[in-house]
Design a binder for these strands. Structure first.
Lengths: 110, 110
DNA sequence: CAGATTAATCGTACTTTTACGATGAATAAG
DNA sequence: CTTATTCATCGTAAAAGTACGATTAATCTG
């Protein structure tokens, strides 16, 4: 990237970008869907569903967790993940807020 | 990336991920805000506002255009960009649809 | 036509992301 | 206690992303 200029932008812009980055990979979207669809928390089942190696899935989970979108707790030899609905709701609002902001002036000249 | 596994996921997942990727950088979020805030189409003004070099801004614009989020037309020696509201609305809906899908079963066990 | 302006593209450098296999740590099962 | 299971982490490799300066192409201006 040659020295990230991220810090030069507003906090809001950085937040939205970070959230978008978290879901900017089909594997992570798929993981979220799996987590949302199960009643109980899942872990290795995700690996079975996705066309990726275990280590790669673990990496994606780590990123989702770092973004605050999911929670993870250790349950014996296995890890239990689930969606952090609070954070999700927050981002949903932030997203719609961005959309609203953009659409206040709906002028398309080209 | 070592051979992208993108193709192994559903089209919807790919679409959402691609859109998220487009706004997964604060500079691109900022660009969209600038475009939305102006009545007339802008081009080089974006460079003045952002803390980035002209070539870098041009690159970001290219990505936004490739994602279908903005339109661009050449106007003499300068280029005129503006938001593709139709695509934006589409993605807004797709996004809310994803949120809804995820929140159908709101079970958090951890 | 000559020079200035605007913006795309090229070349380059460096960082980050994506992906895998292998290893390691923790716990469950025998 | 030994073995199997589950998952995180490490090391590595390759691809993509980010950023810049320089160059180029197009078009205005004088």
């Amino acid at each position: 990237m040659a020295i990230a200029k991220t810090a030069a932008f507003s906090k809001k812009e950085q937040e939205i970008a970070a959230f978008a980055k978290a879901i900017a990979h089909p594997a992570r979207v798929a993981i979220l869907k799996v987590l949302a669809g199960k009643t109980e928390c899942v872990c290795g089942q995700i690996v079975d569903v996705l066309p990726l190696a275990q280590s790669t899935v673990s990496q994606h989970l780590k990123e989702l967790k770092a973004a605050g979108l999911i929670n993870g707790t250790v349950e014996g030899p296995r890890s239990c993940y689930c969606i952090n609905w609070k954070a999700f709701e927050k981002f949903r609002n932030e997203f719609n807020s961005l959309f609203d902001t953009l659409q206040v002036k709906n002028n398309s000249c080209c």
